[in-house]
Amino acid sequence: MKPVLEVAGLCCRLGSRTVLRNIGFSLGEGQAVALVGANGAGKSTLLWAILGLLPSDGEVRIFGRPRSRDGLARLGVVFQNPEDQLFMPSLEQDLTLPLLNRGEAPGPAREKALEALEAVGLAGYAGTPAQRLSLGQRKRAAIASVLVSSPSLLILDEPTAELDPRSVRQLTALLNRLPVARLIASHHLEFLQATTTRALLLSEGAIAADGPSGSVLGDEGLLAGAGLI
């Protein structure tokens, strides 16, 4: 299995606090990995450090190479806050932006955008700006906006935080249909059980466990020790 993401010796300090300690793991093609941990454990920080959006020490390789603009453009990243990535005057323009930017023709780009919106249950909202959607709808639009460029690795930060039960079910089904590698940060254990096969447990900025989702997410002692339940 070719690695799509390799992290070694990653440390991150924010202000005077050490938020990540010596994080190391790697993620292979098509692997679905959960990043689980209590509030403040460092999940978002880890994702940001992997993307190079925060200063950190250590090594990160994406698709076998050091991080680069090309490598990053093959990722699909959904931020914890969907408003950060939907800023164009309509959802359609939000979704077609990455496609047009890399030189695709407007016609096919538009088709892909509509398809992605339909996949997250937002058909009919193509002309609407993100500000006019509910928070959960915005989150779904943000997910569509990364699926549209067929990323080779999905990085999702709390994808279910604002979703109602049906949307969670739809997202679960959608993710399980995609053969693409993914790293999902969340504390929604049920959702992680259903969408991942391996789990990394983060506790106070360090990896406390790394194993099959079934056993890590089902181990109450382990989760309690990490302050999660």
Binding site: L51, A73, V77, F87, N101, R102
Partner: peptide, 21 residues
């Protein structure tokens, strides 16, 4: 965060849509 999200989805920094976005 917004500028970072925008940069992440642009493969070409000055490609089509860069200024508009």
């Amino acid at each position: 965060r917004v500028l970072q999200a925008r940069a992440l989805c642009l493969r070409r920094r000055w490609g089509p849509g860069a200024f508009r976005s």
